[in-house]
C-alpha cells in the first residue's frame, strides 16, 4: 500500500501544474517571435495581455506549495522538490516576461520593414524553447544528467546571440540610420538569451532536487 497517498497526489498535481505553466511560457516565446517575424501588432498585443494568465498560474501554484508546506511539513526529497518548484516558478514567470518584452518591441517596430530577413533570432527561439521542453522533461523524470545536458546547450544560444549582435553591429557601422531598428532586434535577441539562462537556472534546481547539491553550471558570459 502506498503511504501518504494524499500528499503524493498533491505533489503530483503541482508537478503537472508546472508542466502546464511551462507550455504556456513556451507558447508565449514561440508566439512572440512569430509576431516579430510577421510584424503582427495584434498578436503582440494579445500576448502582452495573456502574460497576466501566466502570472496568475504562478500564484496559483505558489499557493498550493505554501499550503503543502504548512499542512504537511515536507522533509528531505519532498522538501527539496517543493522549495525548488517555488524557484522554478519564478524562472518560468521571468521567461514569460521576456516573451512579453519581445512583444512590446514588436509594438515599437510597428509596420517598419525589418533590416533583413530574421534567421538567427528564430533559431535562438527554437533552441530556447527546445531547452525549456527538455528541462521540464528532466524535472518530471528527476534526471540530473539530462538537466546538465540542457545546461550545456546554453552555449549554442549564446553563440547565436553573438552572431546576431555582430551582424547587426556591421549594419549600424555602415549606416547609422539603421541604429534604431538594429537596436530593437538586439533587444529581442537579448530577451531570448536571458530566457535560455533562466532555463539553465531551472536545470540547476532539478540537479538540487535529485542530488541535494547546489551546482552552479550555467555561468553565462552575459
Amino acid at each position: 500500500m502506498e503511504i501518504r497517498t494524499d500528499f503524493n497526489r498533491r505533489l503530483r498535481e503541482i508537478q503537472d501544474d508546472i508542466l502546464i505553466m511551462g507550455s504556456m511560457v513556451e507558447t508565449a516565446i514561440i508566439t512572440s517571435i512569430k509576431a516579430l517575424k510577421e510584424r503582427d501588432i495584434d498578436m503582440a498585443q494579445q500576448l502582452i495581455n495573456d502574460d497576466a494568465l501566466i502570472n496568475r498560474k504562478r500564484f496559483e501554484i505558489e499557493e498550493k506549495c505554501i499550503k503543502l508546506i504548512a499542512t504537511q511539513q515536507p522533509l528531505a526529497g519532498d522538501l527539496r522538490t517543493i522549495i525548488s518548484v517555488l524557484n522554478i516558478l519564478t524562472e518560468l514567470e521571468r521567461v514569460g516576461d521576456y516573451a512579453a518584452g519581445i512583444s512590446k518591441i514588436v509594438l515599437m517596430i510597428g509596420n517598419e520593414e525589418h533590416l533583413k530577413p530574421l534567421i538567427d533570432i528564430p533559431r535562438m527561439a527554437d533552441k530556447t524553447t527546445l531547452m525549456l521542453r527538455e528541462s521540464l522533461d528532466a524535472f518530471i523524470k528527476q534526471d540530473a544528467d539530462k538537466a546538465r545536458a540542457v545546461i550545456a546547450e546554453d552555449d549554442d544560444v549564446d553563440n547565436l546571440y553573438d552572431q546576431v549582435f555582430r551582424e547587426l553591429l556591421t549594419f549600424m557601422i555602415e549606416d547609422p540610420r539603421t541604429i534604431t531598428r538594429a537596436t530593437r532586434l538586439i533587444w529581442a535577441a537579448h530577451n531570448l538569451e536571458r530566457s535560455a539562462d533562466r532555463v539553465t537556472n531551472i536545470c540547476e534546481r532539478i540537479i538540487y532536487i535529485v542530488t541535494g547539491k547546489m551546482e552552479e553550471l550555467g555561468a553565462s558570459n552575459y
Binding site: I3, R4, F7, P74, L75, A76, G77, D78, L79, R80, G212, K213
Partner: peptide, 18 residues
C-alpha cells in the same frame, strides 16, 4: 539528515513513506 539524507531508508522514514 532532514534535507538530504544519504540512505534511502532514512529518506523513506522521514518523508513518512514507511
Amino acid at each position: 539528515i532532514f534535507t538530504n539524507p544519504k540512505d534511502k531508508r532514512t529518506e523513506d522514514y522521514i518523508t513518512g513513506r514507511f
